[in-house]
Amino acid sequence: MDILRNWKIHLLVLMIVVMSENLGIVKYGLIILLPLLHALVLGGIISFPKFKILSTKQMEVAAGILPIAMMLLIVKIGLDIGPNLSLLFHSKGALLLQEIGHFFGTVILGLPIAVFLRMGRESIGATYSVAREPNIAIIAEKFGLDSPEGRGVMATYICGTLVGAVWLSILTGVVAKLGILHPYALAMGSGVGSGSMMAASVGSIIAAYPDMEQQIRAYAGAANLMSTILGIYVSLFFSLPLATKLYNFLSKFQSDKETAKEKV
């Protein structure tokens, strides 16, 4: 009964939930701060190692409950898909093709920045995917986690865990408020294949377009399901080779420029 014995964790979550929900949705201009964001930040502060409130063991229990609680969110979102099935079917092309954006968007935007910052071969592991658990497994199997690629994927995993949800929630809120992209398109964008990041992102879209709440969740849920299922295969067979090729190309260009500079 490991889960019940760690009552301190649940009591803290209860406290955090009461505080976060009382605070509610906070809006500053283009920025939307949701209760889930308050909860994440409050939890992060409480778990800060310096405060010694929680032991590493207790933090691991909290990390263990997270994916199980996430299943309830998956149910909640799944229940929005059935009533909107004909709507989703009507936009099946968009649902399928937007996955290209999910799988290659990380490389297209992330890799050039990583190479520019001279991260070396770590750039490949760091940017070939959103670096969630299945993506780590792929790199571990192909290169080992002690390789530069392995260090790269672990770095994005750790950093993504810390800032991913916060960043996506704020970014989505700003993009939604700009009103250039349709809320359905944003909803599909939010299905990145990580539960907490999707929740944070969808929450911000719903806060901006409350009257389309159910359809937004249906699109996000469908896209997230596709990212989760297809993600393993696409990132192994397409994204990783693409990231490697693009890295070899970009780094060649970089070293050429360096030698040119040295000659001068």
């Binding site: 964790i9 939930v17 889930l36 909860a39 409050l42 909290a62 969110l73 929450g203 709440e213």
Partner: peptide
Amino acid sequence: FLAVTTPILAYAGLSLG
């Protein structure tokens, strides 16, 4: 929906340390 997400992210937060 938002009520479902808050405890999840609270657990996530408590594991960040």
